[in-house]
Design a protein around this nucleic acid. Sequence first.
DNA 1: AAGGATATCTGACTAAAGTCAGATATATGC
DNA 2: GCATATATCTGACTTTAGTCAGATATCCTT
Lengths: 289, 289
Amino acid sequence: MLDPVSRVRRFNRAVTSAVGALDTSFLGRGRPLGAARVLNAIGHGRADVGEIRDYLGLDSGLMSRLLRGLEDEGLIQTAAHGDDARRRIASLTAAGKREFNAYEAISNRQAKDFLAHNSQREALLAAMDLIASALGRDGTTLVEMDPRSDEARYCLGEYYAELARRFRQGFDVKLSRDPDAKDMVRPRGSFIVAMSDGLPIGCVGLKGGGELAEIKRLWVAPAARGLGLGRRLMDAAETAARELGIAVLRLDTNSALAEAGQLYRRTGWTEIPRFNDDPYPDLFFEKRL
Amino acid sequence: MLDPVSRVRRFNRAVTSAVGALDTSFLGRGRPLGAARVLNAIGHGRADVGEIRDYLGLDSGLMSRLLRGLEDEGLIQTAAHGDDARRRIASLTAAGKREFNAYEAISNRQAKDFLAHNSQREALLAAMDLIASALGRDGTTLVEMDPRSDEARYCLGEYYAELARRFRQGFDVKLSRDPDAKDMVRPRGSFIVAMSDGLPIGCVGLKGGGELAEIKRLWVAPAARGLGLGRRLMDAAETAARELGIAVLRLDTNSALAEAGQLYRRTGWTEIPRFNDDPYPDLFFEKRL
DNA sequence: AAGGATATCTGACTAAAGTCAGATATATGC
DNA sequence: GCATATATCTGACTTTAGTCAGATATCCTT
């Protein structure tokens, strides 16, 4: 009655009808779903016609007609791509933006209603994050970013908050050896953020330069753990280190972060003696590239 | 960037594409989705044509044609309802059962693959249960059942397991005053199970008879908490008690079950002195109907 | 037994989605 | 410069989904 497969399928049935409800409310704006989806894709920043076609899985003929329809409605305009005149770039007109905002309002309202009707708000959100990360794993991309970007700062904030929760003595960034942002930007180092559908869900920093560099700030959102993202981030950081001509990597961590320690041991890192006087770490690793 | 509404919408996008993938794989059996859905509804035990129509939200004309198509394929047969010859009852033929099993295999495989690709199996399942319960709340029905039914026994098993986890001294059914099943069946009492999409997610027992009766075994699945189900179950038990002519209800509970105590206090129950010598409870309540 | 209600079916439609074979313009490799 | 590949568009379809007004048979109430 309650085997795992039945539970997954029960979930599928529940969300299928919820998804259907959103589609129905989209129809309320008097436009077929196909056209509404194209308009929303453009509104969400997809400009390249071919990319939209792939994203929505449409035939090129159908896509072309939907674009023509939206143009006739005065909601979008298309222009040739600067580098390649075969390709077309679509964008919203002022009227298109208004219409797009109306669809956004429908989606936002639905999401808000769902939250408002449930007292277990935080638990629900955490569950949704977990499932979205698991479903969207193949769509998770690693992007090199400035550590001062919004996305990076969000990740770092979550990282520090988690350390504060997990270290018995708490955590205060000021007491730790906080790397200068410039050390984590090329050509000295690198900072990589994992993005899943527009949301930052993990990060890692590479603090250079010279032959010896340090891995810092490896963090994976709770909702995305167990999906191999930590390993992907570490691989990406190592690749960046190789590109920068770095021969030896070091890192420090704390034995309270058990998953991290396991990951390092399993991926070719060896424990070495303490190499700094930071008060928080109690475990030190090295890896030769 | 991470406001609750964005998180819900990210979830929506992730499941929308997953649901679309299942639909697409259903098309692989060379039958339009509408027909496949009707076939699956029948396979899952929905026999009454009108009920299927409501469930799938179909127009009666469309429904009729889909049934005719499945009949022509030799997958289903229809017959008049025994009590009301206007209504029709649909059932699968042998070929229909084979075809239905093929669809089941697709759904099961998809669910299994999803679980196999994720190491956080239990966390994912718990998250899915929670979301399915929250989304399916309006579809949760309370059904009076025999306490010896599979569904009731499942609920009771979960209930005992939870007590064992939450009581410091553990819990052994044999030491507790276990009500005889016959005391929780009409006309002496009642046993009510909350069913969500075929899954039992909560229960409550009313142990009679006479003027004084006891509420026993109130349980709500962890995935369904915070959705007001406990209150609905208690209301249903009270209604059943009134129908049975019971004037006073009593119950015992343990202060370790904080949510339960709160619920009783908020719904008109008053604390009374101990009225039995069961070793587990330490809190006693009464309510006059 | 009559009149109204109900469940399903049929026929005649429309709208939306999807398919496919060219046509056209542009890009790329040799 | 020419053959080939690519991106989009157009025209001519088919299929699927959905709608609506009756027709038919049966049930329920009085």
